[in-house]
Design a protein around this nucleic acid. Structure first.
Length: 222
DNA sequence: ACATTAAGTGATT
DNA sequence: AATCACTTAATGT
């Protein structure tokens, strides 16, 4: 009945959240949460899909994308260790349906908590409340950044920012992806991405080969 | 050897 | 910056 989290997950949970949650809350999460692992490329959540649980990221990275009615996508932000999905908060209050798509960027581990506890814990644990508000704040800032990029930055600047962010999230200077993938994330065409990347290569900022972009410097700005 | 997929490029809008 | 049309390069069968 009480399938507590395995030691392995308990340790990782502690690494990612232990410093900010009180011990009683950690015990609750261990008692109630279910551990899940996802492989790179997995579709965790799609638009229109019902949200029943709140994910607490222990490891890996998840890409959050928006899609319009014509099926055109745009990268919003990444979730990393210690993050949770702010969409779930909104779902808890209203629609219960996801309005974003979540795909696994890097093999990930997480603990799932039924949405009902999200609300309950707000009253029970001060650190939970602080975490939820801090998460909303962080996501709000990500949204504003996305809007700013979209509205005020040229495509070359957006690409530079994208590459920098990708290096941060993956912790590697080697970005294993295709120009087509980047084009989808930035909502532009593959040709444009190829041209801008070629330009960066000529400036010695990156090195290109098939399915691989090696970032030579983090100073990719114009 | 052939097909498929990824990337490079000139020209046009 | 987007699109077209085509080329070249890398990879899979």
């Amino acid at each position: 009945m009480h399938t507590m989290l395995e030691q392995h997950y308990q340790r990782k949970l502690d690494d990612a959240f232990g410093f900010m949650f009180e011990p009683e809350l950690m015990q609750e999460i261990i008692r109630i949460g279910q551990a899940r692992t996802f492989r790179e490329g997995d579709l965790m959540m799609d638009i229109g899909q019902a949200i029943t649980h709140l994910p607490l990221l222990l490891e890996g990275a998840v890409k959050i994308m928006r899609e319009d009615s014509q099926g055109d996508e745009l990268l919003l932000y990444y979730l990393e260790r210690g993050d949770t999905c702010a969409m779930s908060f909104s779902c808890c209050m209203s629609t219960k349906k996801s309005r974003v798509r979540a795909t696994v960027e890097e093999d990930s581990e997480m603990v799932l908590v039924p949405l009902a506890y999200l609300d309950k814990w707000l009253g029970d644990f001060p650190t939970w409340k602080a975490y939820v508000f801090q998460s909303i704040d962080a996501r709000m800032n990500e949204f504003l950044e996305s809007i700013d990029s979209l509205a005020f930055l040229r495509m070359d600047e957006r690409l530079a920012k994208y590459l920098r962010n990708k290096v941060m999230v993956t912790g590697s200077m080697e970005i294993r992806t295709t120009h087509q993938e980047i084009a989808i994330d930035l909502h532009t065409s593959r040709v444009v991405v190829s041209r801008l990347l070629k330009q960066l290569e000529k400036e010695g900022l990156v090195q290109l080969s098939r399915n691989l972009i090696t970032v030579r410097t983090m100073d990719l700005a114009r």
